[in-house]
Amino acid sequence: MNAFRLAGDMTHLISVLVLLLKIHTIKSCAGISLKTQELYALVFATRYLDIFTDFISLYNTVMKLIFLGSSFSIVWYMRRHKLVQRSYDKDHDTFRHQLLVLPCLILALLIHEQFTFKEVMWTFSIYLEAVAILPQLVLLQRTRNIDNLTGQYVFFLGAYRSLYILNWIYRYFTEPHYVHWITWISGLVQTLLYADFFYYYISSWKNNVKLTLPA
């Protein structure tokens, strides 16, 4: 495993920990989109169907369990925990996530490498992950008042995507036959979605002012 990949996984892990920290210790999910969190739970559930059938490494299995466990517990917290539930900004989190799930499913049925259940589900999860952040970005833009932990959560998620792109470039030049168009194009689309947020995040950090997004 190369350094970009490891750094990518670690920033992904940090983003989840930041979010769990916010939810678990402060008992608040203000500014967090339940729609995005539900989409991530669906992404991991459909991607890691191989968790008990294909063993890759202990690292791989443990990370999969962490991402599955954390995404479902975040959804549980936001839906069922009395205090956390109260801080959920339901009125602004109105993105219709069916509008993302259905096109991704259709696209996965049309464009995939093998027409098997596991492969189509895996491809669906790749497409869905690319756009799953959209409800969160829309919510940020609507609330405009972004607290530090929420900003850091989205920043680390974006960092994870950018590092994965560097990882793919590295692997392409160092490993034979390393070509994965579906993953690359989806990953690129996903990273581009963060570009706008990154711009405002970094300029607010540079100018040492609170992060706000333009309307």
Binding site: H12, D54, I56, N60, M63, F67, E113, W122, N167
Partner: peptide, 10 residues
């Protein structure tokens, strides 16, 4: 062709 164990990314 995808080789077995190639999906080593998360």
């Amino acid at each position: 062709i995808r080789l077995k164990g190639e999906k080593d990314e998360l």
